[in-house]
């Protein structure tokens, strides 16, 4: 069913004359207990490439990601996906830092995802095998998902997100508690998704990971965008004082 396009967003697309951004936040405010955790955040992300959200704890990275997933609605401001204000849940996928896997086998987890994402019954077995292969999960397919190692669980979670064939893939510190080998496996899956045309938005504190994966860095501080800079330039010469302090290892208060 086609989503209705509000007039305002329709106009802005025509005016710009280009593809609308994959996701755009406009003057977004999110308050919890009287405190603005996201405080007038404006950010617009193109439909391809990998954007890495960096910033100190409490900068609002995870909340921004959840706003982009449509999981929470802003108290003020707007979030738009491809210029439209409805959450396109089938084309946006979110991977959490701590994977939430169903109390089922790996195979059943992926089957459930394919079904939830509306993949036809006939197509499911073929897609399922491809996903297992992609995540190198064939040998683990019939194991209960929740007894797997942390790295294996995150691989299942990521492959499950890819079951949606997302146009926008949101990752919240997916390798924060993983060893280097498991991290490499996750990163290669992320690269594969990016090559297949998905827009990647990744939250990470791992500078090496950001350098390996990012096309651009969005640096957040105090619930606002401090800077948006191409990745290489950010690490050579961050544009904002906050970014410089962060890279120098200063405490941001």
């Amino acid at each position: 069913m086609p989503e209705p396009i509000s007039r305002a967003s329709h106009l802005s697309v025509i005016e710009a004359g280009v593809k609308p951004p994959a996701v755009a936040l406009h003057d977004v405010v999110l308050e919890r207990r009287g405190k603005a955790l996201v405080d007038g955040l404006t950010l617009s992300l193109s439909t391809s490439g990998t954007t890495v959200l960096m910033g100190p704890n409490g900068a609002g990275k995870s909340l921004t990601l959840r706003l982009m997933a449509g999981l929470i609605a802003p108290d003020e401001g707007r979030v738009r996906w491809n210029g439209v204000e409805t959450t396109p849940s089938q084309s946006v996928a979110l991977v959490f830092q701590k994977p939430v896997l169903l109390r089922r086998s790996v195979r059943a987890n992926l089957k459930h995802a394919l079904k939830t994402y509306g993949v036809s019954r006939i197509e499911r077995p073929r897609r399922l095998e491809k996903l297992l292969e992609m995540g190198e999960l064939e040998n683990l397919a019939d194991r209960p998902a929740r007894v797997l190692s942390g790295g294996e669980q995150q691989r299942v979670a990521l492959v499950r997100a890819l079951a949606a064939r997302p146009k926008l893939l949101l990752l919240d510190e997916p390798t924060a508690s993983l060893d280097p080998q498991a991290t490499a496996a996750i990163e290669s899956l992320i690269r594969m998704a990016a090559q297949n045309g998905a827009k990647i938005v990744l939250v990470t504190h791992d500078r090496g990971q950001a350098q390996r994966l990012a096309d651009e860095i969005v640096f957040l501080n105090h619930g606002q965008v401090a800077e948006v800079t191409p990745a290489q330039r950010f690490f050579d010469a961050p544009q904002s004082q906050e970014g410089r302090d962060y890279l120098d290892g200063h405490l941001l208060l």
Partner: peptide, 12 residues
């Protein structure tokens, strides 16, 4: 409580 975000993010 555990599944809510996941299932909603999947559009269930």
């Amino acid at each position: 409580g555990e599944y809510d975000e996941l299932l909603r993010s999947m559009g269930a």
